[in-house]
Amino acid sequence: MKIRHHLRQLQIFQEVVRAGSLTKAARRLELSQPAVSAAIANLEQEVGFLLFRRNHYGTELTLEAEYLAEGVERVLTSLKHLGELSDGLRQGRAGKLLVGCKPGMSLSVMPRIMADYLSDYPGSQLSLQTFSSLHIRDAVSEGQFDVGVIEIQDDMHALDVTRYGIRLYLVLPENSPLIGHETVTAEDLNGLPFICLDEHHQSTIKLRNVMRAAGVNVHVVVSTHLFPSAIGLANQGIGHTLVDALTAEQFMTRRDSRITVVPFEPSIDLDIAVVTSRYHSPSRQCQGFLPYLHASIEACQRYSQQFGTRASASP
């Protein structure tokens, strides 16, 4: 027989089981005893068997009711959890939020953002996915990631984009003839060994344009994929490089750091973006996370422009 009883009947049945009598259950539920008796009678009619027998000590469960009570307990517990989940989803603090982030900021910035968010929403579950900007762009476009932090890419028509600029600074190896300069220009770099990112990376393209405008060439000795790799190569004395202020600051805290970091003129910014899908509506949790993300990256943008001249301590 298909059971069509109401949730309230199950709750009353559960309380009678716990209290051991109809009278005690009615008192706990703040109901009249006839109301409790009627609810139990209706439930018995629906399930098709007797639930309670009276004895000298009060109300006794039938064997069938004992099995039913176990199932009711599971159902009501599941419904309670479902209600809590619904509340969490409505308030934007439930479900898993998938955040894609380019490698550099995945190590330096995103952990702080997530810590701040989880401090305010401790019931949330976040997933940090570190991939190339191209991979993140596609994953967000397809709805696989909720939000991404990437370097500006071609073909971003499927994304809602908020752009930021992170200032790049020149890293001088300890053997550089430019040590002591407060600012370095394109002309100063003429003929000096340089470590750049791949030829299609925006930092390399922008640097070549600046150098070409100044009538000088970039003398590339090593190319690499990531800013942390470039600054590590500069630390070995291989050449000069441009890196973002966040990578520079993080590297300069290392005990083996032998680099000097100075402003480069004309200034070059790394264009990054916070992206969400234009065709997949963001969840409530994503909507709650975005203000933390934007506020932090805006702060990084301001900090990078004020980073100024820094020098590492000698090893």
Rank of each mutant, 00 (worst) to 15 (best):
V99R: 07
V99Q: 02
V99D: 02
G100A: 04
G100E: 06
G100L: 01
G100P: 07
G100I: 07
C101S: 13
C101V: 15
K102Y: 06
K102R: 12
P103L: 11
P103K: 02
P103A: 12
P103W: 05
G104A: 14
G104E: 15
G104Y: 07
S106G: 15
S106M: 11
S106A: 15
S106E: 10
L107E: 15
L107D: 10
L107F: 13
L107P: 00
S108R: 13
V109F: 05
V109H: 00
V109M: 04
M110H: 00
M110I: 12
M110P: 01
P111T: 08
P111L: 10
R112S: 12
R112H: 07
R112M: 08
R112L: 09
I113G: 03
I113S: 01
I113K: 04
M114D: 01
M114T: 10
A115D: 11
A115F: 00
A115N: 09
A115G: 09
D116Y: 01
D116C: 03
D116L: 05
Y117F: 15
L118R: 12
L118N: 03
L118E: 08
S119A: 13
S119H: 14
S119F: 08
D120C: 05
Y121C: 03
Y121A: 08
P122E: 10
P122K: 03
P122N: 02
P122F: 03
G123Y: 06
G123T: 10
Q125W: 01
Q125C: 07
Q125E: 12
Q125D: 06
L126W: 02
L126D: 06
L126H: 00
S127F: 10
S127A: 14
S127E: 15
S127K: 12
L128W: 02
Q129A: 07
Q129R: 05
Q129T: 09
T130G: 03
T130V: 15
F131E: 14
